[in-house]
């Protein structure tokens, strides 16, 4: 088997694998939320059923740009997933965290392009909220990344993972505690859970960007969220929680990150958009900045 075929198989595997992991997390997440609310909740495979059902429905497209935007968003996020080391497995050998941050925004921009083309004002409001919030959480996130860049003089996620491989005491969560808090707050906003769920506010702007998505488009929307969960939890595990040596440890760590987010989501109400951005800048931003200053002077 030649190298290209092998690479192709790996790429396809990561694409579908990231979707499956994300959907599994979404289903487990719904179960967790239900148990917090003292309900039975749906079965853990409910998200798979939802997505498959979405693909069996008829759907409406408004124009070519809408199709292109949605596909571009999914493509951008899957391309990001290629750069996330999953346990020991990494397709491309080295994966720079700067590229990950760069590619992740393609997903959002594609989504913005696609849903704005649908012409629904609620979708435009939703996506403008998402982009405004992006400004709020990316600055603290980048400050923490810069602290790591200063320490290691490298942007490779695998380098970070190897540096944390000597047991639980070597995890970055102890080395960059303020940075971890900043990234956790930013992560809450990244996945759009309360109190930063401005983008999808069902009672307020009728689910925001998803308002005009029907059938297959909605299915792709769900897959987008699934891949996004995979990418962002994977990124945090590799940055702070010591990576993993086997796939199940990796999955458990990733779900632990998501579980924290869900627990906060279940008990929080929604900020207003300007409160949300101010909160992110003041709290996540100051923790990130302190971490950066500390690392630069004493690190």
């Amino acid at each position: 088997m030649n190298a290209y075929a092998l690479l192709g198989i790996k790429l396809i595997g990561v694409s579908f694998g990231s979707m499956a992991v994300g959907l599994l997390f979404m289903g487990l997440g719904r179960k967790v939320t239900a148990r917090i609310q003292r309900r039975m909740g749906p079965p853990f495979y409910q998200s798979f059923i939802d997505v498959i059902k979405c693909f069996t429905k008829t759907s409406i497209t408004h124009n070519f740009v809408m199709d292109l935007g949605i596909i571009m968003a999914l493509g951008g996020l899957i391309a990001t997933a290629f750069f996330i080391p999953f346990a020991n497995f990494s397709i491309l050998g080295s994966s720079s965290v700067v590229i990950v941050l760069y590619l992740m925004s393609i997903g959002y921009l594609g989504m913005a392009m696609g849903v704005s083309a649908s012409g629904n004002p609620n979708a435009t409001i939703g996506i403008s909220r998402a982009l405004a919030l992006m400004m709020g959480y990316e600055i603290p996130f980048v400050m923490v990344i810069m602290a790591m860049l200063i320490t290691y003089n490298s942007s490779d996620l695998l380098t970070y993972a190897v540096a944390q491989s000597n047991g639980i005491g070597s995890w970055h969560i102890w080395k960059y505690p303020l940075g971890f808090i900043a990234v956790e707050i930013a992560f809450q906003a990244m996945v759009g859970e309360a109190p930063y769920d401005h983008m999808i506010a069902p009672a307020e702007i009728a689910s925001g960007p998803m308002v005009e998505l029907s059938g297959k488009y909605l299915g792709i929307g769900f897959l987008l969220h699934a891949v996004q969960l995979y990418v962002e939890t994977g990124l945090i595990v590799n940055l702070f929680l010591g990576g993993a040596s086997s796939w199940y440890v990796m999955l458990v760590k990733m779900f632990a990150v998501y579980f924290t987010t869900l627990s906060i989501n279940a008990v929080m109400a929604r900020y207003r958009i300007e409160q949300g951005i101010r909160h992110l800048w003041i709290w996540a931003g100051s923790f990130g900045l302190l971490q950066l200053i500390y690392t630069r002077i004493w690190g």
Binding site: A34, Q37, R39, G41, P42, P43, K57, A206, M210, V211
Partner: peptide, 22 residues
């Protein structure tokens, strides 16, 4: 919908717009 009878265990849930609903 809420904890007593919990229709989400049947896979049902509220949706925001007619486009998404069955």
């Amino acid at each position: 919908m809420t904890s007593r009878y919990d229709m989400e265990r049947l896979g049902m849930g509220p949706m925001a717009t007619p486009r998404q609903a069955d």
